[in-house]
Design a protein around this nucleic acid. Structure first.
Lengths: 334, 334
DNA sequence: TTGAAAGCGATACCAC
DNA sequence: GTGGTATCGCTTTCAA
């Protein structure tokens, strides 16, 4: 079914039907009513492909995430989506599962769909992709990677700073043997995170020991990585998880080893996802304001109302330590 | 940038470029190579709107969920998506937040995008929408609502059966005062769930008492609803949550009231999301196989390989009780 | 206030 | 093997 069918049944031209549907140009009230009646009788829904093709412009944004299962990403998505809907945009999501190849095809898919802007909130970003997007004629916003330019904006969270705060806090509590639980350490941004931890440890005034382990993102991975960590011989009095989602698994593995948190082992997460308050015990973590990130991403992708053609910008997010009940002084400390 | 640009630069016609890009028809090897070279030099990506418009058919499926934040839905999504990608389909997601109006626009959006099939996995389904979709010329699969017909398939989980098993189990442990925690009881399918609970309670051989409370879906809502429940005066020895996601909040509220689970109060969930094993204590729940649901949905939306034009079918899912550590006999029982 | 017609960027059929 | 062109369903001038 198409405009033609509606036009015929309403005894008008397709141009008129189009005007009615888009609320543009002058249309006599009675004509308008007649057309709308036919439209609803026929259950007509305009072909959006034809519409974007003819219209040229697009009110659609694309967003690509590494792992929608992790509430961190989902929160950002919801924030972008809600801004978008409010302003009459649609949003297309894609999930890469941390696979670089999947990221490539998602990006190309979004370009094929001629999105008006693209947010790339992933950890598997590779330099050549950044270049390709920079050269493309498309508004893009990256998360924690790349540098601003004509069409590129950036949102930076300064992950190392948050880790530094965490490690300092644990150190101040008296912890000297700390483990790190990460995931996908083969991917640059994620091995950077592990490195941030190591550097923070090395910066400690007195002698400290550490070990790291990694498995896939999520509670299961966190549990598995913790299992490895407990077998290293380090006997950590604290474990720093790369994010809250994995920390949930850390807590479980400790519990199953009859290690109390925080009496025997302290645990920290990162992100401050809402689930972190429902963990047992509630997690000490680093707050990353997902809603704000979503708003920034939307702003970055969207022309300012007042026509000011926003150049690529850089937005900085400041990670804040949130102390809850999963951390305490190590056993046997004063 | 379009086919024309590529064609010009490669000194061929747009028809040839199209052939190369789609791997159809005969093309001389050298021409093919030349075209591909230009395509990559120009970073050309075909306009998918034009493609679907010209091609007619679509390799895109739509999926609509009530709440992607609830891992139950996300698991189904991932399962559908993975099948889809494997078979060369794309999938478009939409999230309704349990808002009927949002569902309407999502459905229309999907129709406008001319998806090849639409999975509607929501709780806010209204009869007139079912009709509209039934009349539409579109493969649809519903979750736990509607009846099969020409183009409509259904996946049914028999929620009441699972609740019945749960209540029977709690009853057999000795529980006589049980609370129910739900959400969005204004929506038919969800008030049905609450009703299932009540009916299961009424079926108990001896006298039992119950109360219900509701808040929004999720841990926060679960916590809030539990707070209400604890104020009703029914001092429940067990709480049945409408799903695992809410049960996580139930556990938290009980903990904050110094009620031990399961020593003082037993708790059950529903769905068996992976997080339910990470709850403290791990949740007794009802297993709903999300992956299988995803596979079934994909099958229902997709023409069989062998051309057998699958009529609308009904798939039944059997809910199974999974007993873990959040349930026990009530305090003071033999 | 309305209609006719020129694109938008592909696909696919038909010639050559 | 390759090119020309009708066509998909819509938006958007331009005339009437």
């Amino acid at each position: 079914m198409n405009l033609q069918d509606v036009a015929k049944k309403a005894h008008v031209s397709i141009a008129t039907v189009s005007r009615v549907l888009n609320n543009v140009g002058p249309v006599k009230k009675s004509t308008r009513a007649r057309v709308l009646k036919v439209v609803s009788e026929l259950h007509y829904h305009p072909n959006l492909h034809a519409r974007s093709l003819a219209g040229g412009k697009s009110r659609t944004l694309g967003v690509i995430f590494s792992n929608l299962e992790n509430p961190f990403f989902l929160d950002i998505f919801r924030s972008i989506e809600s801004d978008a809907h409010e302003r009459g945009y649609e949003v297309l999501v894609a999930n890469t599962d941390y696979r670089p190849q999947q990221l490539v095809s998602s990006i190309h898919l979004m370009m094929g769909r001629r999105v008006a802007g693209l947010a790339v909130i992933v950890s598997e970003m590779e330099p050549h992709l950044i270049n390709e997007l920079t050269e493309a004629n498309l508004r893009v916003v990256f998360y924690d990677v790349g540098t601003p330019s004509r069409n590129i904006s950036n949102i930076r969270v300064n992950y190392p700073r948050g880790v530094q705060k965490t490690v300092e806090y644990l150190y101040s509590l008296g912890h000297r043997r700390i483990g790190f639980v990460g995931h996908h350490t083969g991917l640059d941004p994620l091995s950077d995170r592990q490195r941030s931890f190591i550097e923070a440890m090395k910066r400690c005034p007195q002698h400290v020991e550490y070990a790291t382990a990694a498995d896939r993102d999520g509670p299961e991975g966190g549990q598995q990585a913790t299992r490895q960590l407990l077998q290293t011989g380090l006997r950590p009095t604290a474990i720093v998880a790369v994010n809250d989602f994995m920390a949930i698994g850390v807590l479980k593995e400790l519990r199953e080893n009859n290690l109390r948190v925080p009496a025997d082992v302290s645990v920290t997460g990162y992100d401050n996802i809402r689930l972190s308050e429902f963990a047992v015990p509630p997690l000490t973590t680093v707050n990353i304001p997902r809603a704000e990130i979503g708003h920034l991403a939307f702003r970055a992708l969207t022309p300012e109302e007042d026509g000011a053609q926003l150049e690529g910008r850089e937005f900085r997010i400041n990670p804040e330590l949130v102390i809850r009940e999963s951390t305490a002084s190590p056993p046997g400390s004063a």
